[in-house]
Amino acid sequence: MDFKGKDLISMNDLTREEIDEILQKVPVVQNHPEKKQLCRHKVSAMLFFEPSTRTRTSFEVAMRNLGGKVGGFYDASITSVVKEESLWDTVKMHDGYGFDVIVIRHPLKGAARLAAEAAEIPVINAGDGPNQHPTQTLLDLYSIKETQDKIDGLTIAMVGDLANGRTVHSLTEALLKYNDCRLIFISPRDLAMPRSLIDKCRKAWAERGATFTEGSRIEDYISEVDVLYMTRIQKERFEERSPLLEKFRSIYRLEASMLKSAKPHMKVMHPLPRVTEIAPDVDATDHAYYFQQARNGLFVRETLLALILGVVR
């Protein structure tokens, strides 16, 4: 498989084989003897139409670790966008400046796909509104595989706001490409996984043996899971000082004392930032993996840049 020159817009564009190939290349790039030289003459355009801390920093550091440079903007309010320049034109312009790859984050769904159509050079989607954030999903999958040695057949629970969480939607769709996964969706009923995704899970049962359960308490499943994927219950989804927000946050909170019956290899993951859903006392347990997971984001993004720029095959 050759990823040189390819766009990375949506997990839906990738087959299981392509995902596996990317994940296999992560240690290759991470430990490459000439890593610092790989992208020596390459420049990445960072087109950040909305703020981001982790994704932006990790892409920047990733490019620097490969010996490349970055340009672009991180605040659309200082660009011609405020002069009502279209996304198409902004991308076209950067496409002509001699960059080798574009990394784009935009608040609108589908913006990255449109950017990829405007640009000759490859485009990496670093988040298009609530739609896709494929590098996050790939780093989640990498972290799962790294800690469990496989993805097929795992039991993975997702907890929190499953209605609005982009990461859990995308992760669910990706896991449905694997065989015999058991997915457990734990959320208040108001924040349950969307029906369209539940339908996809049902269809995947026949094709790949995937099963799913919807539950409402973390404690009921803690002893069965290989991965506990926690998410934040976002304040902005609730009205000001809503009693529900506090209630949900107290129910969907993981504390170290709840982990006693967990399997020894069970890992707790989280896309970060966390608020109250993982108590600080979990950090000291062997189950905590969210900071390594975030660090994996750097390695996965290095790998994607190296593959798409064609410096590693």
Partner: peptide, 12 residues
């Protein structure tokens, strides 16, 4: 129908 879709904000 998605009001956050880029097609509802850009001429595409």
């Amino acid at each position: 129908p998605d009001r956050f879709c880029v097609t509802n904000h850009e001429e595409v």
